[in-house]
Design a protein around this nucleic acid. Structure first.
Lengths: 343, 343
DNA sequence: TTGAAAGCGGTACCAA
DNA sequence: TTGGTACCGCTTTCAA
């Protein structure tokens, strides 16, 4: 049946201890033996047994460090929920989670927390962090030190993380445009786009996808303005109201940022409700309420709970199986929701 | 830390073997001891360790029997895929899956396969079967014999299954209506409804949800006709074409059945493409192609892969933890998809 | 009815 | 650099 360490040890004629060491490349094994063992393991398709590994690791359990910029960010609640679920599920398989939360995207602060997680003995990391040169370098160093890193929700380009768990932002924008096109195919679309920050990779990708799709469908549209709400409600309300006053022709609003929705809602209410077709992104309490009140027509969500859960699960898998190289990204769905999804 | 059998055995002053037997109510243990052990386990919040249990069960592994009416039903492909994934994942935790496939919903045949699964030594079952008195009785018997049963995709009312994994059909219909309302709010809706069989519980629930929501939104609509495609392409094409010819005013089509889509597509193409706003259910190859060709506008899907995966996972959890009583149903999402989801 | 012990797969320690 | 062994938590024999 399934190949075990004992099988390998018998076949080669060394002890199980040696086989184990060879496979986990502790360096206290001769290069020759190590090669033979690995070769055979490969040939016979040896896969370590999670139960065995978990049991023996109990004494010395595997800690996963998580960093989220979740302070004052309600979007992260569901990601945290998913992480908690996974932690409970994998607890008896020898997994422990340490969560560090920060506010915002300050590179120095993120670096400090990464260091702190490492100092706490984390064997692997799951990070939602900034696409910045210093972060990239740090992740590459960690890879050298055998601390695999997984990225959640936001990619860091060209670095040695084992995989990415998160959405396809460009596709999210496409879907918003497609919905708009289906629902208002016969009108001229005068669209106001609201983002958090134009420099934010995810928001920018959404807007790009949105425009690409409008073009592809040959919609009669005009992007009247793109305004920045700075991911907070007050600014969002201000800039939205201003834009709506300056452009009375607006009949659609695309909100590409998940934060600041409350401000958006306030602006729409102030500027005569019901005049606009509104698509927003990401499901938080406020968004749900605005959909229920018919102020927002559709929300395009990104399965945050699944992201949190899968981040932990994939690291668990990695630690208890592969332990080397990179694995497939996990791209969550773009889930369209309307009023009826929230009742 | 976490409470183990050894902790319990020390605290009470009996051997671990006895504690294990008491907790798994093998009857070879005195009523008194059993009570004391269970009480303490409860008080201390003992939860069995999956790794330990899995390891010791290796010799004698846990078989889950699955019954699906999947022959000639492409819809079940994704459910099977999810089952396969779960099987691979839980293999090293002592789970094995035996799949029986049948064609259609014949009660006698289903009963025979349930018996066969039991005879093959299955310790638990996951069934997609008929809501029929004889099936209900059989499931209740199995519960008596300590064979827990879980239902996939189709409920059997008032029977002692441990839980249901599947969609909310009524909600699916509501969402179809909501989409229609959002997209064609300014027109009179003359709707043709196509079902598989009017007697099929899922299809009936969808149609009911569809109508309920149209009413609630006070849409200007008329259900021009409800036709039965008998879940096959040929009949579906015939009845659809006939209905479209008799009712030239039709401008929307709601397909509440997942089977027969190919026939529906053929009928629409024959009767002048592009005249209709079309919503279908369930994602199979044909549906995807019809969406890509702009013949179907939206599909409302029900996460079949997740259903298969969760069915196995929940049984694994049940066997390695609770082993008694019922657990929460797992209701999958109603996922709205359009062209861009398939590229 | 109960206790003692073997064994599941893997890791880590100690001795050789 | 290796082999031998104890141990992780649990189930299941075999004896008592």
């Amino acid at each position: 049946m399934t190949v075990t360490l004992k099988d390998l040890s018998k076949a080669i004629g060394v002890s199980v201890g040696t086989v184990s060491r060879a496979l986990n490349d502790k360096s206290e094994v001769s290069a020759e033996t190590a090669r033979r063992v690995r070769q055979l393991a490969q040939d016979l398709g040896y896969v370590p047994n999670r139960a065995g590994r978990a049991l023996s690791a109990q004494k010395n359990l595997n800690t996963i460090g998580v960093l989220l910029p979740s302070i004052n960010g309600p979007f992260f609640d569901d990601i945290k929920q998913g992480i908690k679920e996974a932690e409970a599920e994998f607890k008896d398989l020898g997994i422990e989670v340490v969560l560090h939360e920060v506010e915002g995207w300050d590179v120095q602060e993120h670096l400090q927390h990464i260091q702190a997680l490492k100092d706490q003995g984390c064997k692997s990391l799951a990070l939602c962090t900034v696409d910045d040169e210093r972060i990239r370098e740090r992740i590459n160093e960690l890879e050298q030190e055998n601390i695999p890193t997984l990225l959640i929700n936001n990619k860091v380009q060209d670095c040695k993380n084992i995989c990415f768990v998160g959405p396809d932002y460009h596709r999210s924008g496409e879907i918003a445009a497609a919905l708009l096109h289906k629902s208002r195919f016969d009108q001229e679309l005068n669209i106001l786009v609201v983002v958090g920050l134009k420099s934010h990779h995810g928001h920018a990708a959404r807007v790009q996808g949105f425009i690409d799709e409008l073009e592809r469908r040959k919609s009669k549209y005009k992007i009247v303005d793109v305004v920045e709400g700075e991911d907070n409600d007050i600014t969002t309300q201000q800039v939205t109201m201003e834009a709506l006053r300056n452009h009375s022709e607006v009949n659609c609003i695309y909100m590409a940022s998940g934060s600041g929705v409350s401000g958006l809602g306030a602006a729409i209410i102030a500027e005569s409700l019901g005049r606009f077709f509104v698509i927003a992104c990401d499901e938080i309490y406020t968004t749900r309420e605005l959909v229920k009140s018919d102020i927002i027509d559709f929300v395009i969500c990104q399965e945050p709970r699944v992201q949190g859960y899968q981040a932990i699960k994939l690291l668990h898998d990695y630690l208890s199986k592969t332990r080397t190289g990179s694995i497939n990204d996990f791209i969550v769905g773009n889930i369209i929701k309307l009023k009826n999804h929230f009742e």
